[in-house]
Computed example of a mutant assay.
Amino acid sequence: MSERVVNVTAPGLLAGAALPHLAASDGAVVNVSSTFGHRPAPGAGYYGASKAALESLTRSWALELATEGVRVNAVAPGPTESEALTASGLPGEAVAEITAREAERVPLGRRGEPGDVAAWIVRLAGPEAGWLTGQVLTVDGGLELA
């Protein structure tokens, strides 16, 4: 199954399986999108479209599941340190060039760390975000402003 199908189908299957438990506990769904879900980039069309679809699902599910007491939000990370580029088969020099170029574009001057994104996922899932649903929070070091 391609990543573009997985980016839309997997969250739906997961949310569907978890819904009885989420409804019983006034739980929350936090989807993981990407800045590509609302910011186009050459070569990322299908990936971006899959993340845009996930953002639309986030807003629709927020409306549909509100009566169940379930909140639905998403985070949209910008460039974040991970093994994704290396795992894609790119040579080390290409990975270094891409990561340096991305860091230069981010106003805060660096790529995100996994903890930068995870902290917001935890906040959106927690009770202090109990009045928040249907939102997509961009966590990108200001990239969207550049």
Rank of each mutant, 00 (worst) to 15 (best):
E81Q: 15
E97P: 09
E55W: 07
R71A: 04
N73C: 13
V70T: 10
E97T: 15
H38P: 00
S25Q: 13
L22H: 05
T80H: 13
G48H: 03
L108C: 00
E102R: 14
E93W: 08
V106N: 10
G43Y: 07
G89T: 11
H38D: 09
S33M: 02
R71K: 07
E83A: 15
V70K: 11
R123V: 12
S25G: 08
V75E: 07
L13Y: 07
A96Q: 12
A23H: 03
G12T: 08
G130V: 01
Y47W: 01
P114E: 02
S56L: 12
P107C: 05
L90C: 02
A119D: 11
G45D: 03
K51A: 00
A15E: 03
A52S: 14
A118E: 06
V75W: 13
P79W: 07
L13S: 00
L19M: 05
V70C: 03
A94M: 13
V70A: 04
T67L: 03
L19Y: 02
E128C: 03
A24D: 05
P107W: 06
T86C: 06
A44W: 11
A125N: 06
P91L: 12
K51C: 01
G115E: 15
G130H: 10
A41S: 12
R59N: 08
A96I: 03
T99I: 04
R111Q: 06
A17M: 10
E102G: 00
S33K: 09
P127H: 14
L63C: 12
V72Y: 10
G109I: 03
L19F: 02
W120V: 12
V30Y: 09
P107N: 06
T35N: 09
L13G: 08
E113N: 05
D26M: 11
R71D: 08
V122F: 00
L108P: 00
R39D: 07
I121M: 12
G126Q: 04
A100Y: 03
G78I: 08
H21Y: 09
D26A: 15
W131I: 04
A119N: 10
G115N: 12
W61N: 10
F36T: 07
A74V: 02
A129C: 08
L132P: 01
G16N: 10
G92E: 15
T133L: 08
I98R: 13
E97I: 06
L19P: 01
H21K: 14
S82M: 07
E55H: 10
V29Y: 03
R59C: 07
E113F: 06
G89I: 09
A129S: 15
T99V: 14
R123Q: 13
G37H: 00
V117Y: 06
A100E: 13
L54M: 11
P42V: 14
Q135W: 04
H21T: 14
G69M: 04
Q135R: 15
Y46G: 14
A76P: 06
P20T: 05
L54C: 04
G27R: 10
W120I: 04
L63W: 06
G16E: 10
G48L: 01
A66Q: 03
L65R: 13
P42K: 15
T35K: 09
A118F: 04
H21R: 15
A129L: 08
E128Y: 01
G115A: 15
V29W: 05
E93G: 06
V106H: 04
G92D: 14
I98Q: 13
